[in-house]
Design a protein around this nucleic acid. Structure first.
Lengths: 353, 353
DNA sequence: TCGTTTTAGTAAATCGTTTTAGTAATTTTA
DNA sequence: TAAAATTACTAAAACGATTTACTAAAACGA
């Protein structure tokens, strides 16, 4: 309340140092200038050219002295820009989102943007609510990661691994056709003909397209996936458990196969455990192919052969695309990301038995 | 600009549906009431008791009809509350921060709080700048994860894995003494006497205390760590690479040991790779003990014996502690978290050779 | 019936900035 | 030397809410 105390014997009204943060008005009062002048000078606005250099110095010095920090809320309200974007991910600790987010952050912080992270946990109510509350918070745009867009994109939206063409949404998406060619081609070239498949979970944005392209690539080579060698991942845990369980149930069918095409590295790791518990060695008895190339893939035992998705880059590009949409306000076409195959030791030429 | 268009023949001024979001003033105009009344009713403030039920209904209906969403900036500016907290982590994709963050998010979203995430990447300039910009953004509090506090805590701060007693900072911290007893005790009880140690990287907040307590636990059992069996992790990559490199250089010394005490699971995984490349089998030749119990630990080959830090809970408790500080504004004492040991297959009784 | 209370609201201040539209004093130009 | 331009600023409006302090009309109480 009493931000300024009159010192009885002094000639100046000095702001109390400890009564909350210094506002522009406080500083103006302290310097005997108007807030307008300070604002112009501190923001180096065009009008500030008429302000003499030593007044400017006084202002900068005063700002430093009183530790003046502009109030973000007030400024954002006035200029109608928040330099904040909203990010929606399925879950944070799944080893996928975090790396994408890392790429997002790197691009955003370079542009002095911040972001609010929210997780939808595959819940319908959150998928509807999160975009709304983010927009209430005046985010300038939204990056969705592996997340279905169930809202009208009234502001720029970039979807990482989104496969639907939605008005106002730019997709940053892996070239799944190429990924399937690389993956299935690799196993085929190693001589594998009976390939088991761990299909992605129902709710994952990538499941459908990946399954479709992989199936096509297999069919094209005359080795269509067999239903009895296919099992779908269940549950949304970010642990290898889901791959383990799936492979267990597949093994219970008693079918023979020489290779496993897993939905991702995490499930591949779980699958390997299940195979070994069954006495099957990877890769000598069964080859296992992962997807993503998460950090753990290279150091697993055996090191995983996998289709690499450049997750950091995908996040980074998503953020940069969003930022450029905020500048230009025209919607760029979808961005294609090229996968690569990283051949390690979990896949092997099928033995001539 | 022209938010309202006069329909020449109509008797009402109808707000254009597509000229930006509806403000309270727009809605008030539309309903023929004052913003004051709407605000009172929509926020169910005490004064609203005098407003008759059907007026209230009109207001709610109108709000729904025009899709009115209060502007977060304006409201926050006025009430001086942002329901936002700042989070500072070293890096997002290290498998540690993401899980802690998950716990943070879970607690915050339950309380209708949002958070801004920032990474300091172990850079001094960012360690100084990030708290400042977060405070400029009017966060109500800060959660630091594994991060040194280099700023004056002028608002509530909770530090996860912080070991310094700092005015205004509540630490949520693992009971490292207990962790060391569990870890060293486990290896000792298995008969290990020459134990190699992978010391944490220079910059990690946990390095010093963990090293100190582990050393003490080893000394207490008469098997102090030997310098020649100790190596420090270098570099801040979140990959097992750093553990691999460290173990390589340790092995180059040609010393004998029967167990490795790793700084964390990630480095343990890298170390195992280095050992096996050297022809040493884990656990039959060398036992390896990890720390953290990340998801990958259970599914590694061999499954890692490790000291479990409940990372999700730590983040969750940190957030809940911060929220309660925001309510009470008294600083609670530090929160101690109990570790447990998860015995899997990477450690084994030392053979009687 | 007159004064008080209650009802049903509204006007204006406020939060802390930025920006638009000035203004008074000085300097330059014609 | 008078008009125009420049210099060095400031007052007030605006952003979009909330909150305090009112007010006019109706209802109530004695």
């Amino acid at each position: 309340m009493a931000k300024n105390r009159d010192t009885l014997k002094g000639k100046f009204t000095v702001p109390l140092p400890d009564s909350g943060p210094t506002s522009l008005k406080d500083l103006a009062l302290h310097l005997g200038l108007s807030p307008t002048t300070l604002s112009m000078v501190l923001n180096d606005s065009p009008q500030a050219i008429s302000i003499p250099a030593d007044t400017k110095r006084r202002i900068f010095d005063g700002a430093r002295e009183l530790n003046y920090r502009p109030n973000y809320l007030a400024r954002s309200l006035r200029v109608q820009k928040t330099r904040t974007i909203g990010v929606i991910v399925p879950e944070l600790s799944d080893g996928y989102s975090a790396v994408v987010l890392n790429g997002v952050e790197s691009a955003l912080s370079a542009a002095d943007y911040f972001y609010l992270t929210t997780s939808h946990l595959h819940r319908d109510d959150l998928l509807e609510k999160l975009p709304r509350v983010l927009m209430e918070r005046q985010v300038e745009g939204i990056i969705a990661v592996n997340t279905p867009i169930r809202f009208k994109a009234t502001l720029p939206v970039v979807n990482v691994s989104g496969h639907d063409e939605i008005e106002g949404v730019t997709n940053v998406v892996l070239n799944h056709h190429q990924a399937a060619e690389l993956g299935v081609g690799h196993l085929y070239n190693l001589g594998h003909r009976r390939i088991a498949a761990l299909k992605g979970p129902e709710f994952s944005a990538d499941t459908f397209i990946r399954w479709q392209t992989m199936s096509a690539a297999a069919e094209k080579r005359g080795i269509p996936f067999e239903k009895v060698l296919t099992v779908q991942l269940q549950g949304d845990s970010p642990s290898p458990e889901v791959g383990y369980t799936a492979m267990k149930s597949l093994l219970a069918r008693g079918e023979r196969f020489t290779a496993v095409l897993a939905f991702n590295d995490i499930s591949a790791i779980g699958a390997i455990r299940a195979l070994e518990e069954m006495g099957l060695r990877v890769p000598s008895d069964v080859s296992v192919l992962g997807f993503d190339d998460i950090y753990a893939a290279a150091f697993h035992n055996p090191p995983l052969t996998t289709i690499r998705q450049p997750l950091f880059e995908m996040g980074n590009i998503a953020a940069r695309t969003l930022l450029s949409r905020l500048k230009n306000d025209d919607v760029p076409p979808n961005v294609d990301i090229e996968p690569t195959i990283v051949v390690r030791l979990s896949t092997l030429r099928v033995s001539a038995s």
